[in-house]
Amino acid sequence: MNKDIFRRTSFLFSSVALLALLSSCHQEEKKESKSAEKHNEIKTFVLSKEKMATSLKLPGELIAYQQVDLYAKVSSFVRTLKADIGSEVTQGQLLMTLEAPELTSQLAAAESRLKSQEAVYMASKANYDRLFETSKTPGTISKNDLDQAIAKRNSDLAQLNAAKAAYKEVGAIQNYLEIRAPFDGVISSRNVNLGAYVGPSGKGSESPLFTLQQQKHLRLVISIPELYTGYLKEGDDVNFTVKSLPDVMFTAKVKRLSGALDQRLRSERVEMDVPNPKKQLLPGMVSDVSIPLPANASTFIVPKSAVVDGAEGVYVIRSKAQKAEKVNVKKGRETDDKIEIFGDIKEGDILVNEANEEIHPGDLIKP
């Protein structure tokens, strides 16, 4: 009897344990099912058009409005220096005089040849004039003699003109012994000293004599990426700062647009005029330029988290019949948390708010 009671008790405990195990498995299946359902729930939003007004930050470079390197045209030696680094000069001001003794000799020789040819021409002209007056009396002068006198006069006249041109050429070359400023500006570099040899060739031409810059008027040069070339036009105001004066905001006006893209950078060169009367800014400074990008039209604006920039390119994930679908897009303007996109999308599309590469095409999307 005790054995029967023991068997019944063992069977009862076994049944209770089996029921507890089945109940536990069922609850775990329910939890897993709920977890899977919860996992498939993805936050989405409806795509719509908005207007975005932002600004684009680009580096720029300040350059002199005009800049020129001055060289010597003739082989000579530096005789006097009238300017140095930092000198403010005006147009036509004498900067340097050079010395070339052989040019003085050449000029004297050209002047002698000119005077000699003038005398020859005056003699042949006087001879022709006398023969011409005499030929008015019939039979006194033959036509051949008169023709020869005319030819001699014309030949001497041509020689005289050649002598005048040679004298003028030597005189013009001698004028190059004076180096003058071609425009108002500041001497930013000087590479010679008194007595130095300078010339158009050889050691004297390795560096320019002077570098002259116009600094009271500067150019701000930037390269606009292809995507943003339509936002700037002539006359627009642009703000910028420089590292030496970070608290000062400067303004420049767009003056020149190249109208073509650089083949390497795929960008357009834009130049802005910058008045600089106090010379706070210097040529060669790098600036941080803020370019306004106005909201000209409504475009598709989405959260940055909705755009995936991965190995397969730039795309968003669209929900089509609750199935994931990748749509390739191109980026536009950006703010801190939003971005402008372009592609095969339309208003009313349902996009995943937090897209990532772990969501594959065909995956179930439960909004």
Rank of each mutant, 00 (worst) to 15 (best):
T299A: 10
L18N: 14
K203M: 12
Q215H: 08
L227D: 09
S87D: 13
I224L: 11
A36V: 03
A306H: 06
A166H: 02
I85C: 03
E99G: 04
V327P: 10
R318L: 07
K168L: 14
T137V: 15
E29D: 12
E50G: 06
V289K: 08
G259Y: 05
M285N: 00
P225S: 00
A108C: 04
D69F: 06
K136A: 09
E325T: 08
I345K: 06
K326N: 13
N276P: 01
K51E: 01
K366Y: 04
G259F: 09
S258C: 02
S155W: 05
L351N: 05
D363S: 06
S223W: 07
E347Y: 01
Q67G: 13
E50W: 06
M272F: 01
I359A: 05
L227R: 11
V327T: 09
Q159H: 11
I350L: 09
V68T: 10
K233M: 07
R190T: 05
S207K: 15
H39Y: 14
K255Y: 12
F240E: 00
G235E: 08
V186T: 01
N127Y: 09
P367L: 15
R264W: 07
S205V: 11
P283I: 02
G332N: 05
Y315I: 08
S55A: 15
D84S: 14
K346D: 04
S223E: 05
V238K: 07
P182N: 04
S298D: 07
L177Y: 00
L157D: 10
I224N: 04
K31G: 04
L293D: 10
Q174R: 14
E234T: 08
K326G: 09
S155T: 06
I224Y: 01
E268H: 10
S24E: 02
V289W: 03
